[in-house]
C-alpha cells in the first residue's frame, strides 16, 4: 500500500498545518480528523496512516475513534451529496415517497455512491428543521418543503446528466 501523501496536494498542506497548530498533541485527534474530513470529504486510509505517524498514535486507536463517531466516514460520500431527512415530521410530509422516487431515478440506495463518484444518497433521522418539512439537504444546502421533481431537477443541474 502506498502510504505517502503527495506533499504538493493542498489538502495535505492543510492537514500538516492543522497538526502543527495543535502542537502534535494526541488529544487533538478528533479536531484533526474533523479538519481532514472537511478537506477530503471522507477519511482515506493513507490520511489516517499519516495522522497516526504524526501524532504517534496507534493505528487501532485512530480506527476505533473514526468508526465510533457517525460523523466520520471511511468511504467517499460522493462529489455531490443528497441527504433526505426521514425524521417524524418529514416522514409525515412524505419523505419516504421522495426517497423512493429518488432511489428509483438514480438507481442508488440510501448510503450508496454512484459508480462515477458524482452523487451520493444518504438519509438522516432528523436534521432539526421540522418546520421546513419535508427537507432534503443538497451539498450542505437545506432545501425546504421540497417536491420530488424539484430535487431531481436540482441534482441534474449539479451533476449535468441523469
Amino acid at each position: 500500500m502506498n502510504n505517502e501523501l503527495p506533499a504538493t496536494d493542498p489538502r495535505v498542506k492543510l492537514l500538516a498545518a492543522k497538526i502543527k497548530k495543535e502542537n502534535f498533541k494526541p488529544d487533538a485527534l478528533i479536531e484533526i480528523l474533523h479538519s481532514a474530513q472537511n478537506s477530503y470529504g471522507y477519511l482515506p486510509m493513507n490520511v489516517l496512516a499519516y495522522i497516526a505517524k504524526a501524532l504517534h498514535l496507534p493505528p487501532s486507536r485512530i480506527y476505533s475513534t473514526v468508526t465510533f463517531y457517525h460523523f466520520f466516514s471511511l468511504k467517499s460520500k460522493g462529489e455531490h451529496t443528497c441527504l433526505v431527512c426521514t425524521g417524524t415530521a418529514c416522514y409525515v410530509k412524505g419523505a419516504q415517497a421522495i426517497l423512493n422516487e429518488l432511489e428509483k431515478k438514480t438507481g442508488l440506495k440510501a448510503g450508496q455512491v454512484s459508480a462515477d463518484n458524482k452523487l451520493g444518497v444518504q438519509v438522516a433521522r432528523c436534521i432539526g428543521a421540522c418546520g421546513l418539512a419535508p427537507v432534503v439537504v443538497l451539498d450542505d444546502e437545506v432545501q425546504a418543503k421540497v417536491t420530488t421533481d424539484e430535487i431531481i431537477n436540482k441534482i441534474i443541474d449539479k451533476i449535468g446528466t441523469k
Binding site: 486510509m45 489516517l48 496512516a49 496507534p58 493505528p59 487501532s60 486507536r61 485512530i62 480506527y63 476505533s64 468508526t67 465510533f68
Partner: peptide, 22 residues
C-alpha cells in the same frame, strides 16, 4: 504497550480490530 488491539464501531456492530482493521 503495543496497542495492536482496539474496538471498532459501536453497539451490536462492535468488533475487536488489529491496527486499521487489517
Amino acid at each position: 504497550g503495543a496497542f495492536n488491539w482496539d474496538v471498532k464501531n459501536r453497539g451490536f456492530q462492535v468488533r475487536v480490530i488489529s491496527d486499521f482493521d487489517t
